[in-house]
Amino acid sequence: MTKVWTVYLSGEIHSDWRERIAAGVQEAGLPVELVAPITMHEDSDDCGVAVFGPEENKFWHDRKGAQLNAMRTKTLLSGSDLAVIRFGEKYKQWNAAFDAGYAAAMGIPYITLHPAEHDHALKEVDGAANGVAREPEQVVQALAYIIRGDMPK
């Protein structure tokens, strides 16, 4: 029986990096289940008030959503074999930094994925990472090596 690896994909939601990893995993035939937070920005922001009722104060609106999303994130990340933490070019992903810290504290190995221009800002996050990738395809290569010992072609 082959182990199915659970990989949590954290971070930036404005590019196709998750889809590129999913396509690479499928193409390589890797026994991987990819899990992630809710990536529909509006749903993630408004889930708390949609479920628990409206809030006039934006702070409490956001807090309700953050708390609901945190249950998903904590559960999925805690149950993962490893994580990929993506920091994109356009926005600051404070949530991704939090997920990296949580993974490090829980002993969950992770790979960061970001452009070289973020190296200085992310030096501590990268310092605790087990790998730093620049492209989603490098993450797939890392997974192939970790799972099957396959070297890149």
Rank of each mutant, 00 (worst) to 15 (best):
M1Q: 05
K3A: 09
K3M: 06
V4P: 00
W5E: 05
L9M: 12
L9N: 01
L9G: 02
G11I: 04
I13C: 03
H14M: 02
S15G: 09
R20L: 13
G24S: 07
V25W: 02
Q26Y: 02
E27W: 03
G29Q: 11
G29S: 10
I38K: 03
S44E: 07
D45C: 07
D45H: 09
A50I: 12
V51H: 10
F52V: 02
G53K: 09
P54V: 03
F59D: 09
H61P: 00
D62I: 05
R63S: 10
K64I: 06
G65I: 05
A66C: 10
L68N: 02
N69A: 14
A70F: 09
R72W: 04
L77A: 04
G79C: 10
G79H: 12
S80H: 05
L82W: 04
I85N: 04
F87L: 12
F87N: 06
G88F: 10
Y91A: 15
K92N: 07
W94Q: 13
G101S: 14
A104F: 02
M106K: 15
P109Q: 12
I111Y: 04
I111E: 01
I111C: 08
P115L: 14
H118T: 12
H120V: 11
A121S: 13
K123T: 12
K123Q: 15
K123Y: 14
E124L: 14
A128W: 00
N130F: 03
A133D: 02
E135G: 00
E137N: 08
Q138T: 07
V139A: 07
V140A: 11
Y145C: 07
I147V: 13
G149E: 11
P152M: 10
